[in-house]
Design a protein around this nucleic acid. Structure first.
Lengths: 259, 259
DNA sequence: GATTCCTTCTTTCAATAGCAAGCATATATT
DNA sequence: AATATATGCTTGCTATTGAAAGAAGGAATC
């Protein structure tokens, strides 16, 4: 049995019973308790379980209440990978902006063990994720709730973003194209992202590989406008050269110093 | 059974019965009384229980904010009742403000079948609740996420609130007292609520009966400042007269036209 | 209000179970 | 073959529990 399979099975049991016991799982899967504990460590890092003496209980954060469309996640593994790299780029004490993308939610999750971070975001989901943290400063942009989403947009949000300046802005997008640059499906979101980039010293684009060579509806900014690109697979030679010529530092599968 | 499960169960019983007895719990969970006492110690350290000779009582302190998960479960039926009355007071097309209280969450839930409402709130939970609605305008105040809560507070939130004027502000509180007026456990929350009242034509206070004759830490405003009081039980004669003299309209168990 | 008796509480100790970390080995992945 | 990942084992440490003994609280009686 593969490790991943086992962890998935453990998660199923955890969701069914709301708790698991290390000794039981150890007997069930014929592995040592250490292995089980490491599994639970992983589940805890992903925010799904809460370890306790003797086992773990289901972490029913506030996610149970989230609409189905929000809970449904694509490319989780890739986003975790990206989040991990971004995590290594953020330093304790940093002031950062995070957009309302699902990638940014994973980034927020991964950053939680760091101390003393200031976050500005227009994502309700990220606020939720960070609602149990202590010692951080978490700011919401405010604004209008975009229908069918958990993103805040509009005048109030824009005003708030432009009135701050941070170390790093970390955003995601729908499409990355050499000619058309960085694009998104929605004008309001795109505008917010553009303003976040403008308000940061370091502009970080975090996108999974599926977004390359795609063009979406509205332009956020040019490729040359960003400072750092983080992605999950090794990018093609053509892209490497493009980014090099634009002075964009790339962290991809073969070129991320955190592993 | 894991220790944490036992403590969670004890907390649930405590919530339901408002008190627990060491000897009962000891028999119920098949552990020694010492273990139960240690559990109660922990709950007391977390500020959830108050140990007494022979057991413990629920800590419903007016000065401490209970963890969100706990607060959410308290007095649900009463809050539903209140939400239903408030629902009858709000008209389609209204612009309203809702504070970050658990009562307001129920009110938002009940309002959802109405059309064309504009809501301004500093509650993340209400934003979540309203994220799947169409045809409304939902505005977030923005601001700083208050630690351990789902409320936005601070300068940004205050500025946003004062820059709007609405038909109705609907707020809740921790204490209602004839002399000391309307009070809350937290200065930042209280300030937000005060500003919401100032920005509304009609000021509605929605509180369950347990809040009467209680004084909490910091004052929101005077009783005479509100226009409408909504509660779940019939209020005492003394209170009736008080409100009448202050020109506050009361909707309580016997005097709510929606039933 | 003091005395007595019984219950409950606190403190301390010991036993057990569980845990983290480091290292060595095995098993995938590339 | 090289590298990364997963697993098991050992060691020393920590959390949880129960038992015991003395302190303190509460109630009944004088």
């Amino acid at each position: 049995m593969l490790a991943i399979e086992r962890r998935n099975r453990i998660l199923e049991i955890l969701q069914r019973d709301k708790k698991v016991v290390v000794s039981n799982l150890s007997a069930m899967f014929n592995v040592t308790e250490e292995t089980i504990r490491r599994d639970l460590d992983k589940l805890e890092k992903e925010g799904l379980a809460k370890k306790t003496y003797g086992g773990a209980i289901l972490n029913e954060s506030l996610y149970v209440d989230l609409p189905y469309t929000v809970r449904k996640k694509a490319n989780v593994a890739n986003k975790q990978y990206i989040a991990d790299i971004v995590n290594s780029l953020v330093e304790e004490g940093d002031h950062i902006m995070l957009d309302a993308s699902s990638t940014a939610v994973y980034i927020a999750k991964h950053l939680k063990h760091k101390k003393n971070i200031t976050v500005i975001t227009n994502s309700i989901e990220i606020l939720l994720e960070l609602s149990d943290i202590t010692g951080w400063k978490v700011l919401s942009t405010g604004g209008t709730l975009k229908e069918g989403s958990l993103a805040l947009v509009g005048y109030q949000a824009e005003k708030m973003i432009t009135s701050f300046h941070v170390d790093k802005a970390i955003i995601s997008c729908k499409g990355v194209d050499i000619e058309k640059g960085i694009t998104d499906s929605n004008e309001m979101d795109a505008h917010i992202k553009k303003l976040m980039l403008n308000s940061a010293n370091q502009k970080i684009l975090a996108v999974d590989n599926s977004k390359f060579n795609k063009i979406s509806f509205t332009k956020i900014t040019d490729l040359s406008d960003i400072d750092i690109l983080v992605t999950d697979k090794e990018i093609q030679e053509q892209w490497k050269q493009t980014f090099q010529s634009m002075n964009v530092k790339v962290y991809d599968k073969n070129n991320s110093e955190n592993k």
